Simulated scan of single mutants.
Amino acid sequence: MSEKVESAQRSVELTRTSTAVYTVRNATGAEMQFGHGDGLFSPVELLLAAIAGCSSIDVDTVTARSAEPTSYTVTATGDKLSEDGATRVDNLNIAFNIEFPDTEGGQKAAGMVERLAKLSHDKYCTVSRTVERGTPVSHTLNVTVGDSTD
């Protein structure tokens, strides 16, 4: 007996704004610029941000019900490697640095972080679970050359 797989497609649209600079927009209209250059996130940094953000939401949503953190920083790191001319990121790590107030709620929230981070990793964080699984990426190409019938 296999588990039921639920599917809900997600998408973003990327538009080139200049050489190696892009704007990405989601279905709700949120957008950000990234690419290669000063003041821009690189695609690898966006991957790290997605991993850190996904697990942060899982942990923060639950702990904030007990206490608001006084400090909440998550650092995602990875080593960009080149093997036989192909690049990838290895040794991914997420480091949670969270401080809660010294109250009953703060102690309760602090006591949940380890379990919530593990649940995020094992079950809830779509981004890190996708990376760990090694989901294939396909390409669809639609390339044209301008109309030359002038």
Rank of each mutant, 00 (worst) to 15 (best):
A49D: 04
S66W: 12
E83K: 15
S128C: 13
S128R: 12
Q107E: 13
F41K: 05
L116M: 00
R129W: 02
L141Q: 03
F41A: 07
T19G: 09
Q33D: 11
S42M: 03
T19F: 08
V59K: 08
F34G: 10
R115W: 03
D79S: 13
G146Q: 08
K4G: 04
G106C: 10
K4W: 00
A8L: 10
G53Q: 10
N93R: 15
R133C: 03
P69C: 12
T144C: 00
A30I: 01
L81W: 03
K4R: 12
R65S: 12
T130D: 07
A64S: 15
R129T: 10
I94N: 10
L119H: 07
D58H: 09
P69H: 14
G29T: 02
Q107G: 14
V5Y: 02
D58R: 10
V5A: 08
T149F: 01
E45Q: 09
A20C: 09
G111E: 04
G35N: 10
V12W: 09
H36Q: 09
K123L: 04
R16P: 04
S11P: 04
E45W: 00
N97A: 15
M112F: 00
D38N: 02
E6L: 08
R65W: 02
V21F: 09
F96R: 12
G134Q: 06
L46Q: 05
T63R: 02
L46P: 02
S71E: 15
T70A: 14
G146P: 03
K80Q: 15
R65D: 13
V74K: 15
D38K: 08
D84T: 13
T149Q: 07
G29A: 00
D102Y: 13
S148E: 02
T135A: 06
I98L: 14
M112Y: 00
G37D: 01
D84N: 15
S138D: 05
T87H: 12
V137T: 01
L141E: 07
S42Y: 01
S148W: 01
G37E: 01
G39F: 01
G78S: 12
G111R: 04
T70R: 15
A8R: 08
